[in-house]
Design a protein around this nucleic acid. Structure first.
Length: 475
RNA sequence: GGCGGCGUAGCCAAGUGGCUAAGGCGCGGGCCUGCAAAGCCCUGAUCCCCGGUUCGAAUCCGGGCGCCGCCUCCA
């Protein structure tokens, strides 16, 4: 049994996992901005905390997981005052910001359920916590960290010596405005808005009164305010995509640690790497597979994405290709078949025989969640000739508590997709059946070829011939 | 300009100083099946290039080449 170790972005190393409160883990995850459907990269960022949670639960920890819903803000660019992702989406759809948020929040939750994520204990919305955010802003103001300029109230990062620590920034070397316009009046390039003033000429759908005037909170404020509200001023794990580490999380740390005078506010910063889309920008016009529903439309089980996720280490960029997803779907299906067949085995297993495999699986995950290594153990069990079936069954059950691949699911409930019917095709099939009865294989094969040309696949079963459409591979 | 990551068999991907370089998918071969599907078995790499350290390197160091990400309220 190895000690559990996780890589922590702040200390830039893998170190033994410890908790602030014995047996309990507080974990915060930066959740979705709900103005559009989530893409597969977002889902990867959702699967990381789910893996952490399942693993730690299997280790006996009680995990309180909080994922926020960002349903306000997000300026598209400084140049476009008032152009805000929520607002733009709402305007386009002719809906209110709340309706847009509701729609995409639900879509996100459906996606999470489709990849079998355990629901978080708390799933707070930013707009439901405006008072908490204002309260934190006031604390920062009282402690002298804020200053006001034309478009809002800003945090002076030069007053927080540890500002560059999390992201390992070289503030001197940063090129302000390298990718975005400079905001007039900021004291330091890294300063960020805690509260933005509403543009008097542009009525926003979402704005609130505050001690600093009417406006809306800076994006970073919500995560500080809500993590403290639900997990306390200090908690154990904070997860998100790696892109958020540099700016968002540096700012979050600044707010929480300055506002509440604590350090460190987060024990383990765990960031997942991006999917490598091969330099190809995801776009609907290109028909690139990029959302979970796109996968479903192509006939893939959404859990194939979960399997795909488990095949690579979370801190490595993972190449996202059609081929890889197809391979994952196939691997998943085979594993599920094995798991389901083993569920029919009766009897008790032998814990002694299971122990070594269990330990290797567990130790792989204890080593900064090395899921690919754990999966190798899973396959070893799935295909083992040495283990008794009861032991293979028990082991896969145990593993699947963490994998979440529904390996032992009731075969009858899931089973094969329903066999299809169609007068024309059924007619050809009947003709083929007659040919087969008289062993006229030439005719039977000719009909098979005809149907194959129509993208129809014939499967002979003990109950007779069945058919189904071959999943499309276009795009 | 600053910061970070990667380059291992056709594809995805573990391994980061020393057993025969995990695992999945595909390809090929075989078994089974009239054929096919499913299933089962077998099968493949000396680790981007060059130089160095070492008894010994995919694994450490230096130099190339190539790819990707962050520095934007992008996962």
């Amino acid at each position: 049994m190895k000690e559990i170790e996780f890589y922590d972005t702040r200390s830039r190393k893998q170190r033994p996992f410890t908790t602030l409160k014995p047996g309990h883990v507080g974990m915060y995850t930066c959740g979705p901005t709900v103005y559009a459907p989530q893409h597969v990269g977002n889902i990867r960022s959702r699967l990381l905390p789910d893996l952490i949670k399942r693993f730690l639960q299997s280790e006996g920890y009680e995990v309180t997981h909080v994922i926020n819903i960002t349903d306000v803000g997000h300026l598209v660019a400084d140049a476009d005052v008032g152009d805000d992702k929520m607002e733009v989406a709402a305007r386009k759809a002719g809906l209110s910001a709340e309706e847009i948020a509701e729609k995409y929040t639900q879509m996100w939750r459906d996606d999470c359920a489709a990849v079998n994520c355990i629901s978080p204990e708390e799933n707070p919305k930013a707009t439901d916590h405006i008072p908490e955010q204002i309260e934190l802003g006031k604390r920062l103001e009282e402690r002298g960290y804020l200053y006001t300029i034309a478009d809002g109230v800003y945090f002076d990062t030069s007053l927080f010596p540890r500002y560059a620590e999390l992201a390992g920034l070289d503030l001197e070397g940063q090129q302000e405005g390298a990718r975005i316009g400079v905001t007039e009046g900021k004291k330091n390039p890294s300063d960020f808005a805690v509260w933005k003033f509403a543009d008097p000429d542009m009525k926003r759908l979402q704005e609130w009164d505050s001690p600093w005037g009417r406006g809306f909170p800076g994006w970073h404020l919500e995560c500080s305010a809500m993590s403290v509200r639900y997990l306390g001023e200090r908690f154990d794990i904070h997860t998100a995509g790696i892109d958020l580490a540099t700016v968002h999380h540096s700012n979050e740390v600044a707010q929480t640690e300055c506002g509440f005078e604590v350090h460190p506010s987060v024990e383990f910063w765990m960031h997942n790497e991006f999917l490598d889309m091969g330099g190809e920008k995801m776009s609907k016009s290109k028909g690139n597979v990029k959302t979970l529903s796109n996968l479903s439309e192509r006939g893939f089980d959404p859990l194939a994405f979960r399997y795909f996720f488990l095949q690579a280490h979370y801190r490595q960029q993972q190449a996202y290709t059609y081929e890889a997803i197809e391979a994952a779907a196939r691997g998943l299906r085979r594993l599920q078949k094995i798991g389901r067949a083993l569920e029919l085995v009766e009897g008790d297993g032998n814990p002694g025989a299971q122990a070594p495999l269990k330990e290797r699986f567990r130790d792989a995950l204890a080593d900064d969640l090395n899921a690919p290594r754990a999966m190798a153990v899973v396959w070893e069990v799935a295909r083992s000739d040495d283990l008794a079936d009861v032991d293979r069954r028990d082991l896969l059950r145990c593993f699947d508590l963490i994998l979440g691949l529904r390996l032992g699911e009731d075969a009858a409930a899931e089973s094969e997709p329903a066999w299809e019917q169609d007068p024309e095709i059924d007619g050809l099939l009947a003709e083929r059946e007659r040919a087969r009865e008289v062993k006229d294989w030439a005719t039977a094969d000719r009909i098979r070829d005809e149907l194959t040309a129509l993208e129809v696949e014939i499967i002979d079963t003990p109950e007779g011939a069945r058919w189904r459409r071959i999943a499309g591979h276009s795009g």
